Simulated scan of single mutants.
Amino acid sequence: MTFVARMESRIEGFSVIGDLKWHVWDGVVADLWDVSCGDKAEGYYVSPDPRLFVALDVDGDGAFFVEGAKGELRRHDQAFSMAYIPAGVPIRGRVEGLRRIRHLDLHFDAAALTRRFGRSLDHEALRMSRFQFRDDRIAMLAGMIAAECGNDRPLHDLYGEGLLNALFASLFQIDQPDTARRRSPLSRRKLRLVTDYIDAHCLDRIRLADLAALTGLSETAMSHA
């Protein structure tokens, strides 16, 4: 099933430059925005899905300010300044002294993230707002994801999904499962389900998510098994 990003927004003073670039991967919608900013550009945003904002390029002597519902105010005035906004958390954004901002928005389905990482994912981390932070590793991955959104000849989806897995593992500090869990084998019945499916679809694209769904495991647990 294709994940569709849903967000309520009211904006004023922003104008999109060129065409919006975007890409959909399993459980993730990536939007690559390039916008010019008016003198008093501002917006209100709330989404039912978690979202990562990454400033890629900031043109001007001012900043883009993000304000939370409790009055928390954070300044974004450099490339690769980031904000993580949990599901349902409203924010206001306003511009002071910027002419242009290019940024990446990643909207993702929390259920799909759980499917990928299983018990290794700390759901409390999904609920924690981070209105301004920097991380060199996430910055590198976000830059590569943005480049793929703008690629006229995009690579295989497994490339983008691999970048996203690495980004989410860094963003939420998802550790490797313990050794005992990693070495748990499949039961004979589940192993037969998997091998029969592979035999029947050997000429098609076989996704880890499909195999995990057959066995009732998370993608991480299926991979280790």
Rank of each mutant, 00 (worst) to 15 (best):
R127N: 15
D105H: 13
M128S: 14
E124D: 14
R92D: 04
R116G: 04
H123F: 05
Y84D: 05
R102G: 06
R99N: 15
A110E: 15
E161P: 06
H103G: 02
D152V: 06
M128Y: 08
L163M: 12
L163V: 04
H156T: 05
H123M: 06
G93F: 02
G150L: 01
I91T: 15
Q132D: 04
L106T: 03
E148D: 03
P86Y: 00
F133L: 01
I101Q: 14
L155Q: 06
L121I: 14
N151A: 04
D157S: 11
A166C: 01
A111T: 10
A112Q: 14
G162M: 08
D136P: 12
F168L: 12
D152K: 02
R130L: 10
A142Q: 06
S129I: 08
A146M: 08
P86Q: 02
A169F: 06
R134C: 07
A147L: 12
G160I: 05
R116C: 01
A142H: 01
C149H: 09
Y159R: 05
L126P: 05
R137Q: 13
R130A: 10
L158A: 13
G97Y: 13
I145G: 01
R134E: 14
G143R: 03
S129L: 05
D122Q: 09
L163Y: 10
A139Q: 12
L163K: 03
R115L: 13
I91E: 10
L106V: 01
E96G: 03
E96D: 15
